[in-house]
Design a protein around this nucleic acid. Structure first.
Length: 280
DNA sequence: GTTTAACCCTGCACGC
DNA sequence: TGCGTGCAGGGTTAAA
């Protein structure tokens, strides 16, 4: 789950979970459920800090979801690769790999499901939150209005790194993963292996605009749901952006702009898709 | 400073 | 048919 999917989820949570009160919290008995709340020693350390609380706000920081509670504490969730929130109620059986269930006073529940368990959940006070390394070093959000192309250009010039890796570096810019880094680079006409300090100011502006456009468009389409990775929104509905992808997952298929076959290369274990004609 | 590989995990595609 | 193998992928970390 990358920025657009987390943002869609945030909006769903804001509409449907914020202002609800948790009457009971359960961490499922499986070993993997403990992996999800790995920062807490015992199930009770987690559940006791959520029970009785009311959610007041849903905030996104990079790929992290922060559900603020009425006592000031925060329920933090990172979805990893396959994590997701699902709304349900007690008549519906829990689907496999459900690790956490929060039951609401007003009826219904919120479930955290995560087959590959790369995600995690934890509760933190504002003080503790400030000390969480992963959150501390989250860089600027590309959709934040204080993100300007001038500052972006200066930051790019200060680094000597290949573009794809840099775009996926959460300490440099937050929210992009493998899919959207490829899509943004295609929209900007830049190759994955272009060096960050080699970009002209025109290229920086193109990249800056590509970031906004691709991410906003993906949010408008409610995220990317691939066949093998079943991302769905809070209510179980898939996103529609997969059909809009220009390069990701399209190795060998003709480029939608110039018909040249899309290429895929491995970059430190991760696939990078690009058009050798449109990107340079 | 930058890059690479390994690690955590499950589901799925593939080949025999 | 059924099983073993290999791989994807976010992010951190250790090593190159």
């Amino acid at each position: 789950m990358e920025l657009p999917e987390v943002e869609v989820m945030r909006r769903d949570l804001e509409k449907d979970v914020v202002s609800r009160k948790v009457t009971s919290a359960e961490v499922r008995p499986s070993k993997n459920a403990m992996r999800i709340i790995r920062r807490h020693g015992k199930r009770k350390d987690f559940t006791s800090r959520v029970e009785g609380r009311k959610f007041t706000k849903a905030e996104r920081r990079g790929k992290y979801m922060l559900l603020h509670m009425d006592n000031g504490e925060v329920l933090v969730t990172h979805f990893g690769m396959s994590g997701q929130f699902v709304r349900g109620n007690k008549r519906q059986a829990l689907q496999p790999h459900t690790h956490v269930v929060l039951t609401f006073q007003q009826g219904g529940d919120l479930r955290y499901v995560d087959p590959r368990t790369f995600g995690e959940m934890f509760v933190a006070t504002p003080d503790e939150l400030g000390k969480v390394k992963e959150l501390q070093h989250i860089a600027i959000d590309p959709l934040d209005h204080v993100f300007t192309w001038q500052a972006f250009g200066a930051a790019l010039a200060q680094r000597a790194s290949k573009m794809k890796q840099l775009l996926m570096d959460q300490k440099f810019i937050s929210g992009l993963g493998n899919i959207y880094s490829d899509e943004v680079l295609f929209a900007a006409g830049l190759r994955h292996d272009r060096m960050s300090d080699s970009l002209s100011s025109q290229e920086v502006r193109r990249l800056y605009r590509a970031l906004q456009e691709v991410l906003q468009e993906a949010i408008r389409y409610r995220g990317t749901t691939l066949d093998d990775e079943a991302y769905v929104d809070l209510f179980g509905k898939p996103g529609e952006f997969a059909s809009e992808l220009k390069v990701y997952g399209r190795a060998g298929l003709p480029c939608r702009r110039c018909r040249t076959p899309i290429q895929m290369v491995k970059i430190s274990g991760r696939g990078a898709y690009f058009c050798p004609q449109c990107q340079s």
